[in-house]
C-alpha cells in the first residue's frame, strides 16, 4: 500500500462521495464505527479504514476488500459516528461502483443451498439480491 499525490485525487472517491451522498473528509478516524461493528472480525478492511483508505485515495485496496460483501448494513456504526458519516452508504457506494464496473454479480440463485432457498424468508432473499447483484 502506498499513498501518492495522484491517488489522493482519485476519481473513485469523487464517485463514491456522489453515489453515497457522504463526505469522506468528515471522518476524523476515531474508529468508533469499527469498535461496534458486529461482523468486523470477518472484514479485511475495517469500517474506519474504509474511510481512511477513501481519504487517501487507495482505490484498488477498497475495491478488492472483502468488507464490501461482509457489511450487513445494520447501521450500528453510523448511529454512533460522532461525525455523522453514514458508513454503510459509503460501503454501498463502493459495492455499486464495483458491480457496475465488473458487471458481474456476487450472488447467484444457483449458488444458494436448497436449504436456504426453501426456508429463508422472502425478506432475506430479496435483501441479499438487492445488495449483491445488479
Amino acid at each position: 500500500m502506498k499513498v501518492t499525490t495522484d491517488k489522493i485525487n482519485s476519481n473513485l472517491i469523487k464517485e463514491v462521495e456522489e453515489v453515497s451522498g457522504q463526505k469522506v473528509s468528515a471522518c476524523f478516524q476515531c474508529a468508533k464505527c469499527t469498535g461496534g461493528c458486529p461482523v468486523v472480525w470477518a472484514m479485511d478492511v475495517y469500517p474506519h479504514q474504509i474511510l481512511r483508505y477513501a481519504q487517501l485515495g487507495l482505490a484498488d485496496e477498497l475495491l478488492n476488500s472483502k468488507t464490501l460483501w461482509i457489511c450487513a448494513s445494520c447501521q450500528t456504526c453510523d448511529s454512533r459516528c460522532p461525525r455523522e458519516v453514514d458508513i454503510p452508504k459509503v460501503i454501498e457506494a463502493l459495492r455499486l461502483v464495483l458491480l457496475r464496473a465488473r458487471g458481474g454479480n456476487y450472488l447467484h440463485p444457483n449458488n444458494l443451498p436448497a436449504r436456504v432457498l426453501e426456508n429463508a424468508p422472502q425478506q432475506g432473499l430479496v435483501s441479499a439480491f438487492r445488495k449483491y447483484a445488479r
Binding site: 458486529p38 461482523v39 460483501w69 450472488l107 436456504v116 429463508a120 435483501s127
Partner: peptide
C-alpha cells in the same frame, strides 16, 4: 440490539452464524 447478521445468512453463512451465536 446486536445485529443477527441479516442477509449475510444468504451469502456468508458463517458470519451470520457467529453473530447469532453471540
Amino acid at each position: 440490539t446486536e445485529c443477527c447478521g441479516s442477509y449475510l445468512s444468504m451469502a456468508n453463512e458463517e458470519v451470520a452464524a457467529t453473530a447469532v451465536g453471540r
